[in-house]
Amino acid sequence: MNRVDVCWSCRGGVVAGEGFCPTCRVIQPPDPRRDHFHYFGLNPGFDLDLGVLDTVYRQRQQQFHPDLFVSRGATERRYSMEHVTRLNEGYRTLKDPLTRGEYLLKVTGFREQTPENATPSDPAFLLEIMEWRETLEEVDLKGKNAAMQLQQLRDRMMETCDAEVVTLGKGFHDWFVGGKREGLAVAAQHTDRLRYFTRFLDELDRKSELFF
C-alpha cells in the first residue's frame, strides 16, 4: 500500500517514496519502508526481468544524479545522495541471484540472517563441496595445463550453480505464486548451497589470477 505524505517543500500531498512532488517538482526523500522491489517498481519474487531492472536503474541514476542538484539547497542535495545510495544498494542486491535470494528470505520474514553454524543436516552435500575443494587444491598450478584445468572446473561449477538457481527459484515461486510456505525452506536450503559454491568460485578465481 502506498502511503500519502506531505511534500517537505510546498506542503502539498505526495505518495511516500515517489521521487518528486507532483505539485512543485522538488525531489522527495526515499521511503525507508519500501523494499528494493517496490523501490524499483518490480513485483517481489525471485524471477526478475533483469532487463527491466537495468533500465529502471539507469533511468533513476539520471533522475537523481547529484550533478543535477549541485546548485540546489542542502536538503535536495542530501535527498539526491540518499536516492543514489538506495539505488546502488538495491541494484547490487537484486542483480545477483545469491544476494537476491538472501534478501527475499529476509523480506518474506523467513529468516533475518544466514546461520553462522549449522549441524550437517546434509552430510552428502558437505562431502560434495569438500570434493570440489579438493579437486581445486589438487590442480598443479605450475603444470602446463593449469589454466585449462581451472577453466574446465569453473565451467562445471557454473553449470552446478545454474542448477541451484533453478531449484531455489522454484522454491520462491512456490511461495510467491503458489502460496506454499515450505517453498521458502527449499529456497533457503538452495540459497545456502549456492553460497558454498560461490565461495568456491571466489577461491578458484583467486587461483586463476595467476594466469592473467
Partner: peptide
C-alpha cells in the same frame, strides 16, 4: 566429521 558454515561457505573435515 563434516561440518560447514553456511554464512561464510567454510567446510571442515
Amino acid at each position: 566429521g563434516m561440518v560447514g558454515a553456511p554464512a561464510c561457505g567454510d567446510v571442515m573435515k
